[in-house]
Amino acid sequence: MSAALEALTVPHAGGPLAAPQQQPPAGALQQQQQPPAALGAAPKLLDAEEDPKAALKAQAAELESQEDILFSCNICYDLASEPVVTLCGHLYCWPCLYRWLQVQSHCRTCPVCKAGVEKDKVIPIYGRGGNEDPRAKSKGEPEAVPQRPAGQRPAPVVRNPLLQPNANVNAQQGGLGIIPTLFGLQNGNGNGGYAEPLTPEQQHQAFLSRLLLMLGSFVIMCLLLF
């Protein structure tokens, strides 16, 4: 809620000038026009205690809301239906976020953190249950809300088979200095074993360049030794 906090601590006034109207002199007591300040003499806030049934209901709702609070939409405060998450990580119902993006004409931002939000860059969340939430229906949307954008499907990260015998590689590197690197075993992330998958063509090219390098260094070594 950084934006909200910001808004709280730095109130920024802006707007049209009010036409100056009759200003009572500073000290003038206007007793005949009693200020409405008194109105809340006994502030009657929505009081659940008036009705025990209502109180129970409220309590139940409270418990429920505490459970749901992690996964509640930042706009309607309900458990997010058709949940989507923005790139900045804030959770919304798709209908709620869509509506907000429609309302915001000039610059589309996340309601919570004001980061930029693009409609087709939000990430849908697919839980275990069906993707349809009955609440989405009960809320009723007169204007058609389009489908959530689909999730992205990046290619899976594969374990590179070349990098499997990590322990051996490291041992060799320790013993033979630069030589192992010449054999194409340079191993940037020696302990992880995960690497960007290479296409066959890339592998072929890598092999060729290593071969050339090896030949070159062999020639140099020959020149030095003999």
Binding site: A3, A7, P11, H12, G14, T109, P111, V112
Partner: peptide, 12 residues
């Protein structure tokens, strides 16, 4: 006259 009651409002 307060910006958050005008154009700086956000549903959050």
């Amino acid at each position: 006259c307060l910006d958050i009651l005008k154009d700086q409002w956000s549903p959050a």
